[in-house]
Design a protein around this nucleic acid. Structure first.
Lengths: 217, 217
DNA sequence: ACCTGAACACCGTTCAAGT
DNA sequence: ACCTGAACACCGTTCAAGT
């Protein structure tokens, strides 16, 4: 065929096809991607450096989020707790729309600007709360673990542990207790979010009298 | 060659070789595994069902842990907080010895009995603390995220976020603050562990007057 | 500039054949 | 029972050739 008058591939089409494949099957390969676009695998390299870049672009696409989900309105009156809650919830909601993408993102270092911006907002609000230096980094690492874990949880099979529910064990009772829930992952996420914020607030209390709300730029 | 008088492969040797490869390169393949043992790839299938089972066996090997690291002695006097702390620390220490293994374990459902036992001990201690049913499951999910995140953190590159340290941003200051530390990942882990336990303790306080220490069977 | 097809160096897994 | 070698159906990536 050689070069067509109008390009057959666009980066946008590559990302869309990749995300579609991931949503459908939990994985993607360059041959399958190419087949879906109707093009040969090698031609993709004219638009993108390889599989890794595609994954990073998919991360960007996912975190574009849904503009119709505003979350808590973030005016200057919002407490740092509210901002944190809202940011983390939004992050999870983005992955909730593409649960099977989470495992593929884990192994990859974050380069996407929008995701960096997400962490920047968290860092900034943690500073407002009074945390400094390494504590901010530590809190971010913890939030990161929590958010990634929540995203992975969405792609996990119904039973995370291979235990008979109702078995004579604490784990069995826990599995059983969770089974009655409408959305186990969501319940666990909200529980964890409050524990996380409570724990941070308690630690903030020991930082000095600087706590409370601060106007946001 | 055909069948030798004494088997050339043992499951133990397969797991050892796989873990060695992972420690060295962060990945393993069946051909490389076979080459290291001095055998052909297909012969491995006489001992093991495939790549997935090998990974699960590696998980078991890793969580055998180091018997010389006792952690906090767990007598009946230990509070649930101490038990939790000790369990989670041990879990992380196991992965600290094999940081590059963590990313490979994430995608895989846990079937290893020793790891199930780890969660069972956590579930049981959470019940002692007064948590019930879905709350136990939610707390476990959170601990799981935290532990996995901490393990992944050990295999992460030095700079998790692609930010110039000292840049005029909260994230830049956080990266800089963490850079001065001896062990960034360890500091973040201990910070998170306390936040986690503080948060759980606060929530426990709202469960009723059942809290406090309980004798352990 | 952008696509194709052939090619390379890999994978995991199966299976008949050998002893 | 346990190993080999060939085979199958895949990968990601490169590159000369075409327009």
């Amino acid at each position: 065929m050689a070069r067509p008058l109008k390009p057959l591939i666009s980066i946008d089409a590559v990302v869309t096809a990749a995300l579609d494949l991931i949503d459908e099957s939990g994985d993607f390969s360059l041959p399958k991607l190419a087949a879906r676009i109707g093009v040969s695998p090698s031609s993709i390299y004219n638009h993108v450096s390889g599989r890794e870049e595609i994954l990073e672009l998919v991360r960007g696409r996912i975190t574009e989020g849904d503009p119709l989900l505003p979350g808590v309105p973030l005016d200057a009156e919002a407490s740092w707790e509210d901002v944190l809650r809202s940011e983390i919830r939004t992050y999870r909601e983005n992955f909730a729309r593409h649960p099977r993408a989470a495992p593929l993102m884990v192994m990859q270092t974050v380069r996407n600007a929008r995701v960096i911006a997400f962490y920047e907002r968290m860092a900034s609000v943690l500073e407002e709360a009074g945390f400094r230096g390494a504590d901010v980094a530590s809190a971010l690492a913890m939030i990161d673990s929590f958010a990634i874990g929540a995203a992975l949880d969405l792609s996990a099979p119904g039973n995370v542990w291979d235990v008979a529910p109702g078995a004579d064990s604490a784990l069995g009772r826990a599995v059983e207790g969770a089974a009655g829930l409408g959305d186990r992952a969501e319940t666990a996420f909200e529980f964890g979010l409050e524990v996380l914020i409570d724990g941070l607030r308690l630690r903030q209390g020991r930082l000095g009298p600087r706590n409370g709300r601060v106007p946001r730029s």
